[in-house]
Nucleic acid binder design. Structure first.
Lengths: 101, 101
DNA sequence: GAGCCTGTTCGACGATCATGGAACAGGTGG
DNA sequence: CCACCTGTTCCATGATCGTCGAACAGGCTC
């Protein structure tokens, strides 16, 4: 099944902040934000092992930040922008606005 | 000296998010936000020991989220709203907007 | 100066976490 | 069917973290 651990009923502030407070995970979210299409787990630019990546995806999924849709052999990840904006309007914008110098 | 560990030169996203991703610390920030005056360390409504509180203040200070000004016997804490808004405009607003039902 | 109040520092302990390798499970394609 | 490819699960390990009590350090006030 694709149901590793799916999104919670309501977004928890602590869980969301904790999920974003990691360099690898924040980078995953950044890449998802900068992409206009879903990204497969193996297509992310990271320097961590495959199993570590999978663990980070699980954390992001449990926090309700990303959604994973199984599509045949691969798993496509998308940002749950709508839910995120509904609970914490402008959060991702506030976090990534400082990126560009 | 009042210089326990003071604010960093520039705010680090990871440090800020990590500092906010704790129930006790987030509650401290919330109380500071809802107050219009500085609050002494001992005046916060928490259920943790004094030493634990001090440790949380240190974390918030090192992340650049709060500033502590020594005033005689006590230490007055304030939110570094200006610096926070400069680096991550709307971050605190996004986090606390979901508080009220 | 003797207390007292406020906040920090110092271990210490248990829990959580990030990480990686190996084994495993589905799906795809020869 | 037999290789691949993709992603998850299962330990295990080393690091970080939240928590507390006790000791310590300044500043006030009798």
């Amino acid at each position: 099944m694709a149901s590793n651990t799916q999104a919670p009923a309501a977004l928890d502030v602590i869980a969301v902040l904790h999920a974003l407070a990691d360099p690898v995970r924040l980078d995953i979210v950044r890449q998802l934000r900068e992409s206009d299409t879903a990204i497969a787990c193996g297509r992310f630019d990271t320097r961590v092992a495959k199993s570590t990546l999978s663990h980070h995806f699980k954390t992001l999924r449990e926090a309700g930040i990303i959604a994973t849709h199984r599509d045949g052999g691969q798993a496509l990840n998308t940002l749950r922008t709508a839910e995120l904006e509904a609970s914490f309007p402008g959060l991702l914008g506030a976090i990534f606005r400082q990126a560009q110098p």
